[in-house]
């Protein structure tokens, strides 16, 4: 059986802390170590930061919906916004040797998660799916869970 939780926040940077706290709890329930939890929280925080900055252009009253689903073998996180459509081709992690402020968010997301998939934006908004495989010992403990 899967477990699912939805986190709704406005695109207000002051709310990111609360999102991180809630997501930490989800990761704990899923059985991730504190190190992996920190990385997953960082990846989602970076995604929300990009949404606030680029899709919503720093408007603070727009919705961000984060759906976390603990499946048999992975934690799946779907993030939806209703902002300006983002062209997937333009989303690229920057080269690390290019030392400049900014542009590290996508690099961090793709580095710490096992799967990151951006979907082309539509007039209704944007969607991003990120997955992190559950630790082996957690998968082994729950043989009855279905995908």
């Amino acid at each position: 059986m899967t477990k699912s939780i939805e986190i709704h926040i406005n695109s207000d940077p002051s709310l990111l802390r609360m999102m991180r706290a809630a997501l930490s709890q989800v990761c704990e329930v899923a059985g991730f170590s504190s190190s992996d939890t920190n990385k997953i929280v960082l990846a989602v925080d970076e995604a929300c930061t990009n949404i606030i900055r680029h899709a919503y252009k720093n408007k603070t009253n727009k919705p961000i919906i984060i759906t976390c689903t603990i499946r048999r073998s992975k934690l799946e996180i779907v993030i939806i916004d209703h902002g300006s459509p983002v062209d997937v081709k333009k989303i690229k992690p920057r080269k690390l040797e290019d030392l400049r402020p900014g542009g590290l968010g996508v690099y961090l997301m793709t580095t710490v998660m096992d799967k990151v998939k951006f979907f082309n934006g539509t007039d209704k908004g944007n969607k991003l799916i990120m997955c992190k495989n559950l630790p082996k010992e957690v998968k082994n403990c729950e043989p009855g869970n279905q995908r």
Binding site: R20, E46, T49, L99, R100, P101, L104, G105, L108
Partner: peptide
């Protein structure tokens, strides 16, 4: 306790 890429960017500056 926590720093994201915007914090890191600030320190790079």
């Amino acid at each position: 306790k926590y720093m994201d890429s915007s914090g890191v960017a600030t320190l790079i500056e």
